[in-house]
Amino acid sequence: MKMETPAPRMNGWEPNILAFCCNWCSYAGADLAGVSRFQYPPTVKVLRVMCSSRVEPAFILKALKDGADGVLVAGCHIGDCHYIDGNKNAEIRINNTRKALAKLGLEKRLRLEWISASEGLRFSEVIRDFTDEIKKLGENPVKEVKK
């Protein structure tokens, strides 16, 4: 049983961003953006993780490989981590991943942001800003490969 889901293509290309948000701060910040009705473009889909330190570099590479135009990793501000200093581990991993992506010219498609539970506006601004940047960069250059 293999499902082929038809891709509903929209007119014109719009960025497609995957955001890893930590449960305690940045996911809550995204929630607050919603509660406050801060509008931002529908270019981002949030994947909740308990801590930004859960994000494996391979997740980011995989998302880009699968065609994501940008990947955002968002965690608590340094010092605010629900798990004491998980975000510091995340910072090391994400920065290293960005350095690796630099070799491929994709480093601008990865962002690490600290967004607190009270920064709903900031969440929407980050998404808007990242979307604009991705628009400037254009579509993810990965070629679609027939399996």
Partner: peptide, 15 residues
């Protein structure tokens, strides 16, 4: 965690 494989695959799909 497959990071090197993902990296190779990603780079294989780029110019």
């Amino acid at each position: 965690l497959g990071v090197f494989t993902e990296f190779a695959e990603l780079s294989s799909k780029l110019d």
